[in-house]
């Protein structure tokens, strides 16, 4: 028992330390770039193109002479920021749909399920590519496509949680005690739904970041000169053999953020898993 507790605490501490360490690194890098180096991420300077790493440009410059580190940090705003925004909008649409569908049942539920089935009939990436293609290239259109693909999983997880919980005796007891539907949702359903949604969101963040980067890489998302990481990969493709670091840095940034969000997702999943605690 003690060994298990220590192992769990060590694992948790490691996850927290890793996350905190990466955040500190990121904040330090941002401070350095914005207060010391002060490069413009969009300004073209052909005299300084394809420079290797040096003190003035810690990660070198790209084919248009722009500082890679500055573009990576500004690009985080697009890749991570749009990822979080897409996630929040998908959850905000999915949660009320799931609650309504699970609680009301009947024709509302059947209608919702058929709509969800239609969305789930195709893989996320295919639907996102088709929608982005139809709506035209651009980060906002890509955001819309991702929301259309992702809201269904939030609605489904909330609906299934509500369906599992709504017939339990404590829900009946709450109704007998005179709690209103809103109070029952707030007190009894929300704690169940919140855990599932937070875990799904943290695991989804990595997938959404990959989707944004992938679609930007094939030219359907952010357009040049926006320093989005997928678009940076696309920009650096012709120079892969002469300056491979141009593709390496945005690739590492994407992999690092996806890894970080997956670690956070695993930690949150363990944190909200009451049954696992009982087993231990």
């Amino acid at each position: 028992m003690d060994a298990l507790v220590i192992k769990k605490q060590t694992k948790n501490r490691l996850a927290i330390a890793l996350t905190a360490g990466l955040f500190v690194c990121l904040a330090g890098m941002m401070a350095y770039v914005f207060f010391v180096l002060k490069h413009d991420p969009l300004l073209v300077n052909l005299n300084e193109r394809l420079q290797p790493a040096n003190l003035e440009h810690p990660l070198g410059t790209d084919h248009l002479g722009r500082d890679v580190l500055t573009r990576l940090i500004v690009g985080a705003r697009y890749t991570i920021g749009y990822g979080v925004l897409a996630l929040a909008i998908a959850a905000l649409i999915g949660i009320p749909f799931g609650l309504l569908s699970g609680l009301k049942g009947g024709i509302i539920d059947r209608l919702f399920m058929r709509t969800a089935d239609a969305f789930l009939a195709f893989p996320d990436t295919i639907v996102a590519i088709v929608l982005s293609g139809l709506l035209g290239a651009g980060i906002e259109q890509l955001l819309f496509a991702i929301v259309m693909v992702k809201w269904v999983s939030y609605a489904r997880i909330v609906r299934s949680t509500v369906l599992t919980e709504r017939d339990k005796d404590y829900m009946l007891a709450a109704a007998i005690n005179g709690l209103s539907t809103w109070s029952i949702m707030k007190k009894h359903l929300f704690p169940h739904v919140a855990g599932h949604v937070v875990v799904l969101a943290s695991l989804d963040l990595g997938k959404i970041i990959l989707l944004i980067s992938a679609l930007s890489y094939i030219g359907l998302g952010a357009q040049p000169p926006v320093p989005e990481w997928g678009a940076m990969l696309n920009d650096a493709r012709p120079y892969f053999q002469s300056a491979p670091s141009l593709m390496l840095y945005p690739g590492l940034a994407i992999a690092g953020v996806v890894l970080l969000s997956n670690i956070a997702g695993d930690y949150l999943r363990d944190h909200f898993d009451v049954k696992k605690e009982v087993k231990e």
Binding site: D169, Y170, A173, I176, G178, K187, H188, P191
Partner: peptide, 19 residues
């Protein structure tokens, strides 16, 4: 409602595990 209460068969399902 306050004049009427109930106790159910399954104690585990009678209490919300999250609160």
């Amino acid at each position: 409602r306050k004049a009427m209460q109930a106790v159910f068969q399954h104690p585990a399902a009678s209490l919300n595990p999250k609160i």
